[in-house]
Design a protein around this nucleic acid. Structure first.
Length: 414
RNA sequence: GCGGGCGUAGCUCAAUUUGGUUAGAGCACCUGGUUGUGGUCCAGGAGGUUGCGGGUUCAAGUCCCGUCGCUCGCCCCA
């Protein structure tokens, strides 16, 4: 505990990692705003009940993955393992229903007590999008469009495929579940240990088992599409049509299910092969039963979340630090005279650096290693003439620029 | 929670087949050569309890046990 190392499954994000990370967030914010979503920021912890009630007492997240603790007054709190429950809670406690359909986006840290792996951390970060109050497939489609645009704008869409499925409404889902349990109960002896537990706890999860023995049984297993009632079929058909109209490539993946209890109708995951077994880069679905389950009015909702770390890992290039201007004053007077000049450059939005020590050689050295583009030399000679010597660090060319024209000089693209 | 692989300087790696003196190198960093001109070059410096703890041995970076961490996979998920 006293060791100078980060807690298992957490990490410091710095340098190139930090730039990739924030690039993902910036791109997302821009798109989300363009799509008409509004930002919401919810606390990173909630009363434990918020997650317990919504995720289901027996889900893995609740039984073994939550960071829960009692605070000083004895309240049981939990660091959020996912976004939806907290946002739904905010929607209710803030009376957001008055705004009608709400389209919300968010980004921030999540916490799950899991064994770390490539692309999986105990503190990880998600982008999130939710539409609350819309029962129409158009909302699902809009969210999928938003997700796809994000992946496109990040330049990673060609490594990713959309897997789309319908879990049906609660009636369809219940019927299917019964059929599934019947089928697998007949073959219980052939199931893997994991799937035998699933059979009783969460039978639909057997469908995406990686065990070869289980997979052999799947061929003859009942298919969800045969159990959808008309309403569910129409809904799914509309979503597929919309996705096709937007030219989003997808596959209907009947084995795609959800671990969380409150999902219905649409379920989807954007999956890549590039990240090993942590291939789901963005996933979500419709949760029409959630808000009622939490004690609110019956209210439909759809949403998704994406792992920022996973997206960042897939970026082809690391965004560069913008190239800077480095001020190099020589002598005490120049040092003072440089202060307002640097301030004005910075106020104009020009990335401007100034060292605290060193002779000109060292400063130029540091400037070029730090990827600066220009050095502004300011010494006695320059001050006497009210100019600065601007040195192009790539070409070595030097020009004289009047001090009161410095900002304009760099703003004009130099 | 379960299984495999791996832990030597900030990073990448050395350290003779089978244990043997003071654990080395490159990159990066700092200082000087050059008190107003960088990236090169030269010289020097700093940086390590070989992850940690125990054991075997005259002797352990090297062998054994434990532990912690990283990593890949399972479970589950973003």
């Amino acid at each position: 505990m006293s060791k100078l190392q980060p807690v298992r499954g957490t990490r410091d994000i710095f340098g190139p990692d930090a730039r990739r990370f924030s690039h993902v967030v910036k791109v997302y914010q821009k798109i989300a705003l363009a799509y008409g979503f509004e930002e919401i920021s919810t606390p990173i912890f909630e009363f434990t009940d918020v997650f317990k009630r919504t995720l289901g007492e027996t889900s893995d997240v609740v039984t073994k993955e939550m960071y829960s603790f009692a605070d000083r007054s004895g309240e049981m709190l939990t660091l959020r393992p996912e976004y939806t429950a907290g946002i739904a809670r905010a929607w209710m406690s803030g009376g957001l229903a008055q705004y009608g359909v709400m389209k919300l986006y968010a980004h921030g840290p999540m916490f799950r007590y899991e064994r770390p792996q490539k692309g999986r951390y105990r503190q990880f970060h998600q982008l999130d999008a939710e539409i609350i109050g819309a029962a129409e497939p158009a909302a699902d489609i809009e969210l999928l469009a938003l997700a796809w645009q994000l992946l496109c704008d990040l330049g990673i869409s060609d490594e990713i495929t959309l897997h789309l499925n319908s879990l049906g409404d609660s009636e369809s889902r219940a019927a299917y579940r019964t059929a599934l349990v019947d089928y697998f109960s007949d073959h219980e002896a052939k199931l893997s240990d994991d799937s035998r537990t699933r059979l009783h706890k969460n039978p639909m999860r057997i469908l995406d088992s990686k065990d070869p023995g289980d997979r052999a049984l799947l061929g003859d297993a009942p298919r969800i599409s045969d159990y959808l009632n008309d309403l569910s079929k129409d809904f799914f058909g509309a979503v597929c049509e919309g996705v096709a109209a937007l030219d989003i490539p997808y596959t209907h993946d009947e084995r795609l299910v959800r671990g969380l209890d409150y999902y219905s109708h649409t379920a989807f995951e954007f999956i890549t092969q590039a990240l090993g077994s942590q291939g789901t880069v963005l996933g979500g679905g419709r949760y029409d039963g959630l808000i009622e389950l939490m004690g609110g009015p019956s209210t439909p909702g759809v949403g998704w979340a994406a792992g920022i770390e996973r997206l960042a890992m897939m970026l082809e290039n690391t965004p560069d630090v913008p190239r800077a201007v480095t001020m190099i004053p020589m002598g005490e007077e120049a040092q003072m005279r440089a202060l307002p000049l640097v301030r004005d450059l910075r106020a104009a939005g020009i990335r401007t650096l100034m060292d605290y020590k060193g002779n000109m050689k060292k400063r130029l050295n540091r400037a070029s290693k730090g990827q600066a583009r220009f050095a502004v030399l300011l010494g006695e000679d320059e001050l006497a003439k009210s100019i600065a010597t601007v040195r192009d660090l790539d070409s070595g060319e030097q020009t004289e620029v009047a001090l009161d024209a410095l900002v304009a000089h760099f703003q004009s693209g130099h």
